[in-house]
Nucleic acid binder design. Sequence first.
DNA 1: AATGAATGAGCCTTCATTCAT
DNA 2: GATGAATGAAGGCTCATTCAT
Lengths: 202, 202, 202, 202
Amino acid sequence: MAPEWSTTAARRNGILAAALTLFNEKGYEATTIDDVRQAAAASTGSIYHHFRNKQAIAAALFVEGLAGYQRELLEVFRQNPHARDGVPAAVRHYVDWCMRNPALARFMLAGRDFEVREATTAAVREMNARFTAETAAWRARNVERGELRPLGGDAYLAIVYGPARALVRSWLAGRLSAPIEEATAEVASAAWRAVAPPGELP
Amino acid sequence: MAPEWSTTAARRNGILAAALTLFNEKGYEATTIDDVRQAAAASTGSIYHHFRNKQAIAAALFVEGLAGYQRELLEVFRQNPHARDGVPAAVRHYVDWCMRNPALARFMLAGRDFEVREATTAAVREMNARFTAETAAWRARNVERGELRPLGGDAYLAIVYGPARALVRSWLAGRLSAPIEEATAEVASAAWRAVAPPGELP
Amino acid sequence: MAPEWSTTAARRNGILAAALTLFNEKGYEATTIDDVRQAAAASTGSIYHHFRNKQAIAAALFVEGLAGYQRELLEVFRQNPHARDGVPAAVRHYVDWCMRNPALARFMLAGRDFEVREATTAAVREMNARFTAETAAWRARNVERGELRPLGGDAYLAIVYGPARALVRSWLAGRLSAPIEEATAEVASAAWRAVAPPGELP
Amino acid sequence: MAPEWSTTAARRNGILAAALTLFNEKGYEATTIDDVRQAAAASTGSIYHHFRNKQAIAAALFVEGLAGYQRELLEVFRQNPHARDGVPAAVRHYVDWCMRNPALARFMLAGRDFEVREATTAAVREMNARFTAETAAWRARNVERGELRPLGGDAYLAIVYGPARALVRSWLAGRLSAPIEEATAEVASAAWRAVAPPGELP
DNA sequence: AATGAATGAGCCTTCATTCAT
DNA sequence: GATGAATGAAGGCTCATTCAT
């Protein structure tokens, strides 16, 4: 018996890959199942055998992307327990992940909140909860040690990741006037200046 | 009988208002002309009398929002020629404008890039060009005077407005854990720390 | 201005007529909206402009048929207050109505209970209630006068109309071995024998 | 391990039972093979191993039901050679059979004429022919003996079985206002009154 | 016998847009 | 300017059936 999972998984992955490309090219709504069918060289029925509906394809991409990103970022924090290194590293990692996964990044940044959120499962909510808990703990430890400015959680996240997000959006849109690497370095150190503890000179 | 222009303008504005609400509630694609027709208590034909097509409604909303925002922001810069005040003021203004125009803000942040951009006219491009030129000049003057850290343009914009944008997105999504005013203040001063000239102590 | 209702009504009636023919020829489920569209020389959109969905077409046919039949039958009872004449007349009328409206009869006897009942409106329920009340009163009066055998309501209806229904079903199916008129006369007088009061000799 | 035939037959019967339930609940057309698959805890392939296609499942149910009913009814006639007993007995048997096989009765009365008839095999036609011949002979003998009113065949069948059929339909639809047993007795004796020879007093 | 992935034709319905009045 | 009936292309999804294992 041939390795059945391999055939099946290949089909599923082919559909996901095709869908990701198309969603980015034409947008989620404008992409038809028939577009996906052609691009994935699958049959309509096969697509619906693997995914309940069109939304479920987008959700699968989103979840897959989010899980990968979160896994990596937690590793970054593990290797950089101190904010002085961890904050710029997290920012650089954000940009880096997007550069390594441009299609996924573009798709996730498109913010198709409606579709994705409706399809969000309990598993995803748990994934998010864990991730949030771990990162919050990392930050709390640094604040306690006086190695991080005590900011509100809302502001902290916006300050650290907002610029990276904005930068990547511009990069993906082809609106950057210089190589992204330069801006990344500036954004990473700016993040540190913005959240460094009051006394510390940058 | 009311003056004719008023009736006409009211109809047009009613359509825009209805569409804005619906776009935010269900998304642009999921909103049908018939939805708008009902919500605006107009007829199909009437809608098409005022707007070439569905995209044109979205475009009108977008342009109206953008123009208002840009006009106000330029005024902020005029009244705050020095970066020390202008940077935090611009950040606060961003959040403030969104809080005063939540529906418009939500619509514009939804990033329906595809649809809107396709409908972008030459007039809009000119509007953008002027705005960009003026703000860039303000920044250049401050850098020359040593009142602003000399950052790449890409990084500068991401650092200053990225956090505000992220904050507003969370606010609109109802994800903030505290009143937005607190976070706004933190984000505004963080922006200054991030772009203050090297020597200056915050 | 041209008589708008006429055009509109014609379109609606054309759709109904086409659908009735097709439902009888191929069955409700096997009839597609596209079949109806072609037969009615209408556009898809036009069909959906007049009827919410496919079911609503069937429901409209059913209601129209039922209303006509009930109206006529009540008139029969008005003109035949005594059971001795009324019972056979009602039976003959049942067969007669079906012979005058064979397509409608075939459709209604097909007993697409599921589809029709789901689409049954309050108006229909009221129509049925009235009809039932009037016919029950006619019967009650005859029973009181001793002109009709006192039977349970369930049995009475089955005994009087069951044979007519069975006869028409066979006729519509082309299964009769003789002209339906002969059988109709036999069925009508049999109904009277079956429900005549105990003493009365047929 | 159970004997192989038993497993096989069980599977086949399980499919039939599941299908019968579903056909009654949702209708034949609305029941999908996948519905049957789930309800029968079988696989798609297995269903198609036992039945050529969906129609064949319905046909099998229909044939099974018809054969059982006809076998029993012929026995009733054998034990009641005289019309005076045989007619009411046949009517009672009709109702009785339906009460003992409500699911099958409901399915057969649904009158899915199109589908079932298309699948009617030569074997069934022969079965019907035999049944018809035997019952016709029974009736002919009674008419010759003067024990049954000489009615046309079409009218006779309608008069005798029409009421029973109507009664059962109402019972299955839950529309009876009293226990079916009462109405059954009335319908059975009414049938005799309707077909008793002219002279005979009921 | 059983399994379940794959197929692909086809269906109902939606919806932006047009146009006669 | 307004109305709403009409259009018809297109889309998401279903489902009976096949077939390799």
